[in-house]
Deep mutational scan, measured.
Amino acid sequence: LPLEERVTHFRDMLLERGVSAFSTWEKELHKIVFDPRYLLLNSEERKQIFEQFVKTR
């Protein structure tokens, strides 16, 4: 999958899993780590997309 598509899937997962915009990566990790979409991005990309996600929520 192209990166753009993987990012979209990852963001959808964050929304569906009820990730809080007022929380930290560490506190929200347990909600998403077992979702197959979690593995679409490498660890650096995951954290970066998470940070963007919480800023725009």
Rank of each mutant, 00 (worst) to 15 (best):
H30R: 09
P2V: 13
E5C: 09
Q52R: 06
D12E: 15
R11K: 11
L29F: 11
V33A: 12
E16C: 04
E4T: 04
A21F: 05
R46H: 05
K55V: 09
L3D: 12
A21T: 08
E26A: 04
F50W: 11
L29R: 14
L40A: 06
L15A: 10
D12C: 05
N42D: 13
W25N: 05
L41C: 02
T8K: 07
T24L: 05
T8Q: 05
R46T: 01
R11A: 06
F50M: 05
E16H: 01
F10N: 10
H9E: 10
P36A: 08
V33Y: 12
H30W: 12
E26F: 04
E44V: 11
L1Y: 15
G18F: 05
V19T: 03
E45Y: 05
I32V: 14
K27E: 11
L41M: 09
R37W: 02
E4Q: 06
F10A: 03
H30A: 03
R46I: 00
L29N: 12
L15C: 07
S23P: 13
G18A: 05
F22A: 13
I32H: 09
F22K: 11
V7F: 13
V7H: 09
T56P: 14
R46A: 12
E4L: 11
F50C: 00
E45I: 10
F34Q: 14
V19W: 02
R46Y: 11
L40T: 00
L3R: 15
P36E: 08
R6F: 10
E4M: 04
E5P: 03
L3A: 09
V54Q: 07
P36N: 10
Y38Q: 03
H30D: 10
R37Q: 01
K47P: 02
E16M: 07
V54K: 08
L1V: 08
D12S: 10
V33F: 06
H30S: 05
R6I: 15
K27T: 03
R11V: 04
R46F: 06
L29Y: 15
L1A: 09
H9N: 13
R37K: 02
I49S: 03
G18D: 10
E4N: 14
R37I: 08
L40Q: 00
L3H: 15
L15K: 11
G18V: 04
P2H: 15
R46P: 02
A21S: 09
V33N: 09
L14E: 03
F10C: 00
E51I: 04
R37A: 00
T24K: 02
E5Y: 07
K47L: 10
K27V: 08
N42W: 02
K27L: 04
E44L: 11
R37G: 03
V19A: 03
P2C: 15
F50N: 15
E4W: 06
V54W: 04
E45P: 02
H9Y: 10
F22I: 02
P36L: 03
R11C: 06
I32Y: 13
T56N: 13
F34T: 14
K47C: 11
T24P: 05
F50Q: 01
F10K: 01
Y38W: 00
G18L: 06
T8Y: 05
K55R: 10
